[in-house]
Nucleic acid binder design. Structure first.
Lengths: 335, 335
DNA sequence: TCCTAAAATTGAATCGTTTCAATTCTAGGC
DNA sequence: GCCTAGAATTGAAACGATTCAATTTTAGGA
C-alpha cells in the first residue's frame, strides 16, 4: 500500500511542496488560511511524514539509542523509562537494544544504531568502559555512559554513589543501636559491592565500638543470601550480628528467609536487615525490608539531558554526575 | 563530524558508486579483486551505510516496532527478548516503545513507528484490541497482537491458553490429593484471570468429590494475597482448603506468607500452593513455589515470525496462535 | 493608481543510497 | 585478429523530504 507523500498533499491542497513542508516545520511562515487548507489535505490523505526522507535531507536524527545489559532487571527498566520521559519532552525518542550481557550483541547494536544515525548512544557497557567509549568516539558517535563512571574528558556519564549508599546503611544501623554489623554478598570482582562495603567501613570507622563481619557470596541471589542467613542464625546469640547490610535486595531477602524460617530469629528486634536497590521484592517480603534506593528514573532522564546538551550546545563540557542514593526505612530496621 | 559516504568509498577504491553498492548488497556480481579493493576503502574510511538513505530508495524497512504496556514486567521483558532473537535471525531489528499502560502514549509510538516506516508493529494494546487493529490497518501498518487474541481475518495474534493453564493447575492439585481447592486473586474484569478460573472449574467438573472456593482480590499483588492467606489460615482445619491456585505469582507469594508467618501452616503438607507466570519471585520464596509457566520468549519470537511471514509471503493468511502453558512443579505442591 | 517593503509562496537542488539499462570488459572459439 | 556472449562495471534516475534564493502577492501610504 503506497503511503501518501508530501507531493500528494501539495497537489490536493493546491500549494507547493515547500509550503507543505513549511506548514509541517515552520507554520508561522504560512498564512492561517493556507495552513488550514494543507492540514485538511493531510487529514484526508492520512499523510504521515517519512522520517527517512526527513533525516536524509535534514541530517539530524531525533532518536537516541539505549543499550541495556539486562532488560528484565527492574533497575534498567526504570532507567529506560526515565530516558524515554526525558527524550519525549524534547521531541526525541529512545530506541532500545538489549545486549543481554553479551559483548558481541552490544557491538551489533552500536553498528545498527550508527547505520540509523542516531543522535547518540546511552550505554552501560558489558565490558570495559574506556574501550567502548574510545570506539564510539572513533565512530563519531556521541555517548553517555550509564551506571558506570567514565573519563569526563571523553564523554559524560551518570552513576550512583555506592559508597554513600553504604554509609547511609551503616549510619542507620548504628542509629538503631546495632553493635555488631554483618555485610553479606558478592566479592572483590564487583565494583559496586566493593563500594557499598567501603561506605559501610567508613561509617564504622567513626564508631570503634561497633564491629564488622564480612560474608562473601559467589552469587548475588536469594539462595546465596539464605545460606548465609542460616549460618548467622545458628551462631551463639552473643556472636550474632544485630544488624545485616546486604549487598543487594536479593541477598537481603535470602538472609531474611534463612533467619526467619530456619532459626525463628525476630526481625528487626534481634537482627535488623537493610538491602540495596529497593526492588519490588524488598517491599513484599514477610517483614517489609528497608533498602537503599537508587533513583534509576533520574539516572535515565539525566543521561538523556546530558546527551542532548552535547548535541545542541557548542560549548558543551563533558560531566560525570554521581547521584546520591536514599534510604527507605521499613519494618526490617525499625526499632 | 561528517561520516564517509558511498561516494567517498567509490572515489577511494577507484570504482563507481553502483559497484560499491553491489559489493554491499550483491557481492557475487562483483569480481573478487574489486570486492577486496572496495572493502579496503570501506575499512580505511570507517564507512557505515546510512540506513535512512537505504530505506528511502529501497522502500523496505528492516525494523519492527514493539510496543510494550509495562517494561518492568518480567513477562514482557522475556517477550521482547524472544522478539529480538527471532528478528536478528532474519536480519531485522526490533525497536521498543514503552506505553506504560497509557493509551495516548501508545498512540504516540504508533505514529512514531509509522514515520519511521517500520515493517510492522507488535502490540499488546492498552485498550481495545479491535480498535487498535482497525486503526493500524487503516494506516497501512502490518501488525501482530501479542498476549491477546485478535480476529484472524484482520491480523495475526499470539496468546496464551489460560484456560489450559487453569486446567493444569487443577489437575495437579487433584493428583496430589487435594479435596478442597481455593482460587485466589482478581475478579471478572481481568479476562486472563477469568480464563484461569474457568480452566480450574472445567477440571473440577470431572471430580464432583472436590470442592472449590473463590476468593477475589482488588489488587493482584503480594499484599492482597497475604490478606487472603491469613484468612485461609484462620479457618477451622476442616473448613480450610488443602490446595490453593493463585491467579498469579504475586498473589501466590502473598498467600504463602499469610499461611506460613501468621498461621504456621505447613506447605505443602497442609496446604499446597500453585502460582501463575513463573516469575523469578516464585522460585525464591521460602518454600519454592510451583507455578504455571507461559513461554514468553516463544510468544515474542512467534510474533516476529508471523509478522515477517506477512511481509514476505504474498499468500500469507493471518493466524491466531494460542500457546499451551506448562506446569513447573516445586516444593509448594510436592506431596 | 503607483510604489515599496514585508509577507507568502514557489520549486530546483540536495541529502545518500539502490536500481537497472546501457556500456565496457573479458575470455574463448574460429 | 575478429567475433560473440557472458561477466563486470557504470552512472543517471529515483526515493521523499527540507532548504533557501528567487519570485509573487499583499497591504499600506502617498
Amino acid at each position: 500500500m503506497r503511503q501518501a507523500s508530501i507531493t500528494d498533499v501539495a497537489k490536493k491542497a493546491g500549494v507547493s511542496i515547500g509550503t507543505v513542508s513549511n506548514v509541517l516545520n515552520h507554520p508561522t511562515r504560512v498564512r492561517p488560511a493556507t495552513v488550514k487548507k494543507v492540514q485538511k489535505a493531510i487529514l484526508e490523505l492520512g499523510f504521515v511524514r517519512n522520517d527517512a526522507a526527513r533525516q536524509l535531507k535534514a541530517g539530524n536524527s531525533t532518536t537516541v539509542g539505549l543499550i541495556l545489559p539486562d532488560a528484565s532487571n527492574p533497575f534498567f527498566a526504570e532507567v529506560s523509562k526515565g530516558a524515554e520521559d526525558s527524550a519525549n519532552e524534547h521531541d526525541y525518542s529512545v530506541i532500545i537494544g538489549n545486549s543481554s550481557e553479551n559483548n558481541d550483541r552490544e557491538s551489533r547494536y552500536i553498528q545498527l544504531f550508527h547505520e540509523q544515525r542516531v543522535g547518540g548512544v546511552l550505554i552501560s557497557p558489558v565490558r570495559g568502559v574506556a574501550e567502548r567509549v574510545a570506539e564510539l568516539r572513533q565512530m563519531g558517535i556521541s555517548s553517555v555512559v550509564v551506571d558506570r563512571e567514565a573519563d569526563p574528558t571523553l564523554c559524560c556519564s551518570v552513576s550512583m554513589d555506592d559508597v554513600a549508599g553504604g554509609r547511609l546503611a551503616g549510619r542507620h544501623l548504628i542509629d538503631i543501636g546495632c553493635k555488631h554489623i554483618a555485610f553479606v554478598g558478592g566479592g572483590p570482582e564487583i565494583q559496586q559491592t566493593v563500594d557499598r562495603l567501603e561506605g559501610l567501613r567508613r561509617e564504622l570507622g567513626e564508631h570503634p565500638e561497633v564491629t564488622l563481619s564480612v560474608y562473601e557470596t559467589e552469587e548475588m541471589n536469594v539462595l546465596a543470601g539464605r545460606s548465609i542467613g542460616e549460618k548467622l542464625g545458628e551462631l551463639e546469640t552473643k556472636e550474632r550480628p544485630d544488624g545485616v547490610f546486604a549487598a543487594n535486595d536479593l541477598i537481603g531477602v535470602g538472609v531474611m528467609q534463612g533467619l526467619l524460617f530456619e532459626n525463628n530469629v525476630k526481625i528487626p528486634q534481634e537482627i535488623a536487615i537493610i538491602g540495596y536497590d529497593d526492588i519490588d521484592f524488598a517491599r513484599s517480603t514477610i517483614v517489609p525490608m528497608s533498602s537503599v534506593r537508587q533513583p534509576a528514573h533520574l539516572l535515565g532522564s539525566s543521561a538523556v539531558e546530558l546527551l542532548l546538551s552535547e548535541l545542541t550546545d557548542d560549548e558543551h563540557v563533558h560531566r560525570q554526575i554521581t547521584f546520591q542514593p536514599e534510604l527507605v526505612v521499613r519494618a526490617s530496621s525499625s526499632k
